[in-house]
């Protein structure tokens, strides 16, 4: 990507396996502390490496990555940490709760029960500081019409907590597609 970014694409889907590959390489790079690598941005299925070509020429970076990839299985990979997040549903804290319930033709209580029924996996952090991209919503809360369509990512069965950076107030928005309305970032 451009003259300072190398994008490694490890798959074309949102999956646990692809994401683990991405994070393994990102951890490997960080452990090596390679001179000339400015940033590593691991996302669902790709890893963006931002480098300084004045310090680290592209072919040298590629060579280093190849070597690193070979030794990757030996790198220790951390177990996921489970964090429990207290959530206030409905009313002022979740004005869309009823809408979601109506959409799926279930009760608000069922939406809450389903939403709390399983742990969510954090694929990546991006868009804004600490913003986790999480999956997957219980099937009963995903958008079936879109989900049966051609693309899985149109349905994007994610549940992302939007947080107010300053006040620390938390609220969970559980929409069929967890996208925001930012003009610049279709995140």
């Amino acid at each position: 990507m451009g003259d300072r970014g190398l994008l490694l694409e490890l798959g074309d889907e949102i999956s646990f396996e692809v994401n683990e590959k991405v994070r393994r390489i990102a951890l490997g790079i960080r452990a090596e502390a390679i001179d000339g690598i400015v940033e590593t941005i691991p996302t669902y299925r790709s890893l963006l490496i931002i480098y300084n070509p004045l310090i680290l020429p592209l072919d040298e970076l590629k060579k280093k990555l190849k070597r690193l990839e070979e030794g990757l299985q030996q790198t220790p990979f951390p177990n996921p940490k489970l964090t429990r997040i207290p959530v206030l549903y409905g009313g002022l804290y979740g004005p869309d709760l009823e809408g979601v319930a109506n959409y799926h033709q279930i009760s608000s209580e069922d939406v809450i029960r389903l939403h709390c029924s399983k742990p969510y996996f954090i694929y990546m952090i991006g868009f804004m500081p600490g913003f986790p991209y999480m999956g997957e919503l219980p099937e009963a809360l995903t958008d079936r019409d879109l989900f049966n369509g051609e693309s899985r990512r149109m349905a994007d069965p994610r549940s992302n907590p939007y947080q107010n950076v300053r006040s620390g107030k938390g609220t969970t928005r559980s929409a069929p597609d967890g996208r925001s309305s930012s003009i610049l970032s279709n995140h």
């Binding site: 990507m1 451009g2 994008l7 074309d12 949102i14 941005i41 790709s46 963006l48 931002i50 610049l184």
Partner: peptide, 18 residues
Amino acid sequence: VEDSIISEGLISGAIQVP
């Protein structure tokens, strides 16, 4: 192809086409 892709890293100067 679709308008959007699975979210990924950005670099300053990247040109997005929505």
